[in-house]
Design a protein around this nucleic acid. Sequence first.
DNA 1: ATGACATTCTTGT
DNA 2: ACAAGAATGTCAT
Length: 285
Amino acid sequence: MSFIQTDIAGDYQIVRRAIELISENWRDQPELEELALAVGKSPSQLQKIFTRWAGLSPKAFLQAVTLDHARRLLAEPIPILEASYELGLSGPGRLHDLFVTHEAMSPGVYKARGEGLTLNYGFHDCPFGQALVMATDRGLAGVAFCDPGGERSALEDMKTRWPRARFVEDKASTANYAARSFDPARWRADDPLRVVMIGTDFEIRVWEGLLRIPVGKATSYSRIAETIGVANAPRAVGRAVARNPLSFVVPCHRVVGKSGALTGYHWGLTRKRAMLGWEAGVIAA
DNA sequence: ATGACATTCTTGT
DNA sequence: ACAAGAATGTCAT
């Protein structure tokens, strides 16, 4: 049943290496052949793996994560404020803010550092390595990432966010969230994913702003600041974006520097590139 | 390209 | 209270 999922998860390790090489050596435009050699595959193998994973050829992908591309996304008239505009263009189900419904935890729960909260968690294969998925009975509460072997530290990372909460490994209860989060075919407005946001008031305002960035688009930290009415606090916005506990589902990877440069990502810049490129494939499909 | 600094918010002391 | 730091942005070299 999860054959495709598993394959794509396995592909990521190869693809990740290729993306790393591309981003280290983009100046000399590495040929497919060189990349293949470096990751220990034949050119045609790499081509196939890459395309299966991203829905894009390595070349198209390279263009998608290029500085120019992010710039172009930024230059487009801001669709962020006009959800219905986008809806008409790309059809229903494509918008993140429509396939996710969110509720904010009471500030009390946040202040109590998760006291009294039970978080079920599990590790699941996904197109970006291993995803650590956490959920309460109210909905999806956390998504983190790691590569094989990094499970422990990813879990620690998440635990420090809600130090007083109870953590229970329960893969069965998180599997469905994992499957839905990474399968574009299941991003449906008529059956939205239920998420709970646990954070300060300011953080939640920022995260709600993130939910309004459509798939395959990007915005800048300063634009988010403007959108939520704190035009001169782009730096504070950056901090809040960085602390987003619901990686990918709340699309913090779609925020880049004003110049279009990918400035940072808690789970690794390579993963941010991968996500943006992968989404370009989703759009193209 | 590089560096200083302005500015907002959160957190640890 | 206060100081330090953060996934920024801008301006001066």
